[in-house]
């Protein structure tokens, strides 16, 4: 097994092969394409990286940091309160379901891998970010690396969705992922410096697209 803190743990946790079904969710992207908001490489890049920087980093990212601090201090009560806060901020039914299903899948995986703290939470309904925090804590990943990993996995799965939906070529997908680097670093630094009362920033267009997806006629994705 890789040593605690090894980058191998982060690569495994952020890999598309992690069995949590990330490939089946588009987070509103499918209906943004249907609506004409996302139609080419440029608009896909702006959508994905904009949501990452201005919404995801300021909420999931900022709360992941606080969860890892709570876990490091052994404060499971604070960890659960942070999870409840995050869960109450899901913008639509599908985003709520996506978070819950992916969270349950990752929690079960961690339980099956004998992660002690995951077993302690076996009766909880944790969101994905909370389950990710448990894993990162267990394998002793540095907090900053865990944050960047969580954000990277979000971008990676959004780009994979855009390749299918827009559609985009594989090279265009790679260009977005390359462009993600600078944005991700900026977003991570932002998340690391947010005071509590600045945590959270809903993306209204994305929230509406996700709500429309519930009644979209033809769908490839579950969100």
């Amino acid at each position: 097994m890789p040593a605690p803190g090894s980058m191998m743990h982060l690569l495994r946790l952020t890999s598309p092969s992690l069995p949590v079904g990330a490939f089946s969710y588009s987070r509103g992207l499918e209906s943004a394409v249907q609506h004409g908001w996302v139609k080419d490489e440029e608009s896909a890049r702006a959508w994905i990286l904009g949501v990452l920087e201005h919404s995801f980093a300021a909420f999931d990212g900022a709360i992941l940091l606080r969860m890892m601090t709570a876990l490091a201090a052994g404060d499971v009560g604070a960890f659960r309160r942070l999870d409840a806060w995050l869960a109450s901020g899901r913008e639509s039914r599908e985003l709520q379901l996506e978070d819950r299903r992916m969270g349950a899948a990752l929690l079960q995986l961690l339980i099956d891998l004998d992660v002690t703290r995951a077993k302690d939470c076996s009766n909880d309904q944790l969101g994905y970010t909370a389950a990710f925090a448990l894993a990162a804590d267990h394998w002793a990943l540095p907090v900053g690396e865990a944050l960047r990993g969580l954000m990277w996995s979000m971008v990676e799965s959004q780009v994979a969705a855009a390749i299918r939906l827009v559609p985009l070529g594989q090279t265009a997908g790679q260009r977005i992922l390359i462009a993600a680097d600078a944005v991700l670093e900026r977003a991570a630094t932002h998340a690391e410096n947010l005071p509590d009362d600045a945590v959270g920033n809903a993306a209204i267009g994305m929230a509406m697209a996700s709500a429309w997806h519930e009644t979209q006629y033809s769908r490839l994705f579950r969100s």
Binding site: A32, W37, G200, I204
Partner: peptide
Amino acid sequence: IIRDGRPIWFERIRLDGGSPMLAAPYALA
């Protein structure tokens, strides 16, 4: 919004004047 002490809804929206978010489809479109 909390019910019996449990949070059931949280939404924070921050928009700065002149920000790219005002034009971006994922935010104010």
